[in-house]
C-alpha cells in the first residue's frame, strides 16, 4: 500500500511527515550500539518478506508483516519501516519521495500500537509457544495492524480530497482477504520463532528483546 507522489494535499503531507519524524525519533532513541545489528537484521528479514508474494484467490499479494515488526521491534519499527521504504523508493521505484513520511506513518504507527498492546497481553498471560492462544494472538497482531494500515491509508486519502473517498472505501473491502492471510502467516511465523527460541517470548513480552545482551553482561 504505497501511496505515490502527487496524491496527497500539502496539509496532509506535512502533518503526516511531522508525525512520522516524531515516531522515528522515538524509535531511534530506543536503539543503541548493541541493539542496532539486531534491529538491522530484522529489518532485512522484513524487507525480504515484503518481496514474498502469496496466492490469494485468483490473484496474489505481497506480505507486509508489519504487526510482527511492531511486536518484535516496538518503536524501532518506525525507523525500520522508514529504511525499508527508502530503499524501495530509491532502488526499486516503489512509492515516492515526498510521501515517504506518510507511508512510514501508515505502516509503522498501527504496527507499533498493536505490537505494544500484544506485548501487554503476552506478558499478562502464561502462553506456551505451541498453544492455540499464541496462534490467535499472532493472527490478530498480523490482521489488525494490516487492517489498521489500510484504514490509515484510506484516511489520509480521504483527508486529501473527497474524490478519493470511493476509492478508499473500495480499497478497504478489497484488502479484507489480504488481511486474513496476513494474519494467518503472522501467526505461523510467530509460532515457529517462539517454538525454536522459547526464551524470546518473555523477552518480547517484557520489551527486553533489545536488551538481552545487557542482562547477560550484568
Amino acid at each position: 500500500m504505497h501511496i505515490v507522489d502527487g496524491v496527497l494535499g500539502p496539509p496532509v503531507l506535512i502533518g503526516a511527515s511531522l508525525l512520522a519524524v516524531a515516531g522515528v525519533a522515538r524509535g531511534l532513541s530506543a536503539l543503541d550500539t548493541e541493539s542496532i545489528p539486531r534491529a538491522g537484521l530484522l529489518t532485512a528479514v522484513f524487507f525480504i518478506a515484503s518481496l514474498v508474494h502469496v496466492p490469494i484467490g485468483p490473484s496474489s499479494a505481497h506480505l507486509m508483516l508489519t504487526g510482527l515488526m511492531g511486536l518484535l521491534l516496538g518503536w524501532a519499527a518506525f525507523p525500520a519501516v522508514l529504511v525499508g521504504l527508502l530503499l524501495q523508493a530509491a532502488f526499486f521505484g516503489f512509492g515516492g519521495l515526498t510521501v515517504i513520511g506518510a507511508n512510514t506513518l501508515n505502516l509503522a504507527l498501527p504496527a507499533v500500537l498493536i505490537g505494544l498492546l500484544a506485548r501487554h497481553v503476552l506478558a499478562r498471560f502464561d502462553i506456551s509457544p505451541r498453544s492455540a492462544t499464541l496462534l490467535v494472538a499472532g493472527f490478530f497482531v498480523g490482521a489488525l495492524s494490516f487492517g489498521a494500515s489500510a484504514l490509515s491509508v484510506a484516511g489520509v486519502l480521504a483527508l486529501s480530497g473527497s474524490e478519493f473517498l470511493a476509492a478508499a472505501r473500495l480499497i478497504l473491502i478489497v484488502q479484507i482477504p489480504v488481511m486474513l492471510v496476513e494474519g494467518a502467516i503472522t501467526a505461523a511465523t510467530l509460532r515457529l520463532l517462539l517454538t525454536v527460541r522459547p526464551e524470546l517470548l518473555p523477552a518480547v513480552a517484557g520489551d527486553r528483546l533489545f536488551a538481552t545482551e545487557h542482562t547477560q553482561e550484568a
Binding site: L42, P55, L63, V181, I185, L192, R197
Partner: peptide, 30 residues
C-alpha cells in the same frame, strides 16, 4: 503455493526460520 492454509503456514514457518537465523546471526555479528 496455492490458496490453502497449508501454503500460508509453510510460508509463515519459512519466514519464522529466517527470523530465528537472523537473530542468531545478529548475536554473532555483535
Amino acid at each position: 503455493p496455492s490458496n490453502s492454509l497449508h501454503t500460508y503456514r509453510s510460508i509463515g514457518y519459512l519466514l519464522g526460520m529466517l527470523l530465528v537465523r537472523s537473530l542468531e546471526r545478529s548475536e554473532r555479528i555483535l
